[in-house]
């Protein structure tokens, strides 16, 4: 603040330089003005700005991104569930027993069919492969008490047009009886669940299939019990990874048997039994640990 120049009055020249972006004052001010907004403030302001515009856009984008995959997944899930349910619940028009052996044997097989068989779900399509062309079509007898069963029909003749016509007639009769089958199936399922522990063999009246009732054991010490009342029970040794017990119904199908679990969670998994010499070969459609070979105990 010394010297005459510094005390000179304000002038337009100095102002014009300043307004034009030049002059000593602006240069000195620029040199002295190095402060910058703190990074924390930057982050806060940018976050606020982003929050003001981003969320709706993100929501829309996310919705668009997931709409198609979710639709496909839902459709697939419903389709698989529907197909699985149809396969499980479609009642067989008749129980087809293989008649490649003697007619008398076939008749015996029919006579020994349990009540539950007629109302049981249809076997999977792949189970039909081994069927013989000679078939015995049996009308459902589920609603009748066992004592009221009619005497077994005569052994079926070789497949003829007459036999086929008779089969069609019986199929029509069966169609009339289908209406009540759903109710019976539900009752059966509840009954089967309640009967999860194996009843004593002495209480069962007749074996349902060609596999003898009894106890079998696998190399992994899994136990398979087949009972004469058309039920099975699989039990794992303590500490084994599958569920300790699996119970359900047996169903005869040609040379094989199907094991139908009671538990709805396992219902999608199919188990089949085949005889291999003295042993029974248990196979599953889901890679279950129960699968394997079981020998008589």
């Amino acid at each position: 603040m010394s010297g005459p120049e510094n005390r000179r009055p304000p002038d337009d020249h100095e102002l014009d330089e300043f307004l034009a972006g030049g002059g000593p004052h602006r240069a000195r001010y620029r040199a002295a003005s190095t402060e910058q907004a703190p990074a924390a403030l930057d982050a806060a302001v940018l976050a606020q700005a982003r929050a003001a515009v981003t969320p709706p856009a993100l929501r829309r984008r996310a919705a668009r991104r997931w709409r198609l995959p979710l639709s496909i997944a839902a459709t697939l899930l419903l389709s698989v569930g529907l197909v699985s349910r149809v396969q499980r619940e479609a009642p067989p028009p008749a129980i087809v027993a293989q008649a490649k052996s003697a007619p008398g044997e076939a008749a015996g097989l029919r006579a020994s069919a349990p009540d539950t068989l007629a109302a049981a779900p249809a076997p999977p399509a792949r189970a039909e492969a081994p069927r013989s062309e000679k078939r015995i079509v049996v009308a459902p007898q589920a609603a009748r008490p066992r004592e009221a069963l009619p005497p077994p029909p005569p052994p079926p003749p070789p497949a003829t047009a007459e036999a086929e016509a008779e089969a069609e007639a019986q199929g029509a009769a069966l169609a009339q009886a289908r209406a009540g089958q759903s109710e019976r199936r539900r009752a059966e399922a509840a009954q089967a669940r309640a009967a999860a522990p194996m009843p004593p063999a002495a209480q069962v009246p007749a074996p349902p299939s060609g596999f003898a009732a009894g106890h079998y054991r696998s190399a992994q010490d899994f136990e398979l019990q087949l009972s004469d009342d058309g039920r099975f029970r699989l039990a794992a040794p303590p500490g084994a990874s599958p569920p300790p017990v699996l119970t359900g119904r047996r169903r005869r199908e040609g040379d094989a048997e199907w094991l139908l679990p009671d538990d709805a969670a396992d219902a999608s998994c199919r188990y089949s039994l085949r005889r291999e010499g003295d042993a029974l070969d248990l196979q599953s459609s889901c890679g279950s640990a129960w699968a394997g070979r079981y020998w008589p105990r």
């Binding site: 603040m1 000179r8 009055p9 304000p10 102002l15």
Partner: peptide, 19 residues
């Protein structure tokens, strides 16, 4: 006018370092 006076005061205040 305000800017003219402001510049003049800054010049006076800092005359010893920014002649």
């Amino acid at each position: 006018s305000r800017l003219r006076y402001a510049l003049a005061k800054l010049r006076q205040e800092l005359a010893d370092v920014w002649p």
